[in-house]
């Protein structure tokens, strides 16, 4: 069927869109596209941030392949993201579901959401001092209740526990937001479906598992992608709590990139790391979208 030629009015309407879009496009171009393309360019140079960059082509990417420090940051970043998801999602889902059913649910949700209002630095320092072996409140409490052996554990000073502490701090700070998303998803599930299941003799867990959970899947997979992006980009909690230590056990791509660029003034190499991170996020997002796709439930 031949394509219909747009009428004069339609063409004028389309033209009218351009001036309205232009300011946003300009800002987007200036603050998003321009820096992004500049980063790609810088990644192909050796640049100390002051003197003129020197073209090295793919040299920085070749160096990445031989950099054991970078390899270890990839492992740590994956550990952070997976560990974080394992703590965050069950917790957020639990609070999102349970606070819907409790009498003062809104109040509890407010309490869980409250840490989000703190800046990341404040939250990180709070946790840092909470577990400080010399002056930390946690250690004092453990001593007071006779758990001296537990109190002597340097939670941020041991490679085996430091990452877990950073994950707990990150999750504690943000879980309220994720809980709110899940609570909203639970609210969307029609009450009659849950009532029918209950009348059929389903327990609360069964109602959640077989009725609510399948209907929340679309929201969950979106949140999984968001967490994955956040996890791969993680930076602030780690820089404030451990600075990548102990023994580089919490050094992730974000903190390594920062140190390469700003402490060692190797902006070309830092930009190459940023490009790889960008590519990894893009590929993993597409992959996870594909792998978690299910036929959506209609209700």
């Amino acid at each position: 069927m031949p394509r219909r030629r747009p009428t004069l009015l339609e063409r004028q309407r389309r033209r009218l869109v351009v001036p309205f879009l232009l300011p946003a496009l300009l800002l987007y171009g200036l603050f998003m596209l321009y820096p992004a393309f500049t980063t790609f360019y810088v990644a192909l140079t050796e640049w100390d941030g002051v003197n003129a960059p020197e073209w090295v082509g793919g040299g920085n990417f070749g160096r990445l392949l031989d950099d054991p420090l970078f390899t270890s940051t990839i492992t740590n970043t994956i550990v952070f993201t997976v560990l974080g998801a394992l703590v965050l999602f069950p917790g957020a889902m639990f609070f999102g579901y349970v606070t819907q059913r409790l009498r003062f649910g809104r109040f509890y949700r407010f309490l869980i959401l409250a840490p989000v209002a703190l800046s990341v630095t404040t939250a990180a320092l709070l946790w840092k001092f909470l577990v400080d072996p010399n002056f930390g409140a946690l250690q004092s409490i453990l001593h007071a209740i006779g758990l001296d052996s537990l109190a002597s554990i340097e939670l941020l000073g041991r490679p085996s526990t430091a990452m877990l502490m950073v994950v707990l701090a990150t999750v504690w700070h943000g879980i309220g937001l994720w809980m709110t998303f899940f609570a909203a998803a639970v609210e969307r599930v029609p009450a009659e479906l849950k009532e029918s299941a209950t009348l059929d003799g389903a327990t609360s867990f069964q109602v959640f598992r077989f009725v609510v959970w399948p209907l929340m899947w679309e929201v969950t997979r979106t949140l999984l992608v968001l967490w994955m992006i956040q996890g791969l980009q993680t930076f602030a909690f780690i820089i404030a709590m451990t600075n990548g230590g102990p023994l580089r056990a919490t050094e992730v791509i974000g903190t390594y990139l920062y140190k390469v660029a700003f402490a060692s003034s190797e902006f070309g190499y830092g930009a190459a790391i940023a490009v790889v991170l960008f590519a990894a996020i893009l590929v993993l997002t597409l992959l996870s979208q594909r792998l978690t796709r299910r036929e959506s439930e209609q209700y």
């Binding site: 840092k128 001092f129 577990v131 400080d132 072996p133 010399n134 002056f135 002597s152 340097e154 939670l155 941020l156 000073g157 041991r158 102990p246």
Partner: peptide
């Protein structure tokens, strides 16, 4: 070295 030194930051170490 003071017990727990692996897990303290420099402010805490100086304070101790």
């Amino acid at each position: 070295f003071l017990d727990g030194f692996r897990g303290v930051d420099f402010t805490s170490a100086q304070m101790s």
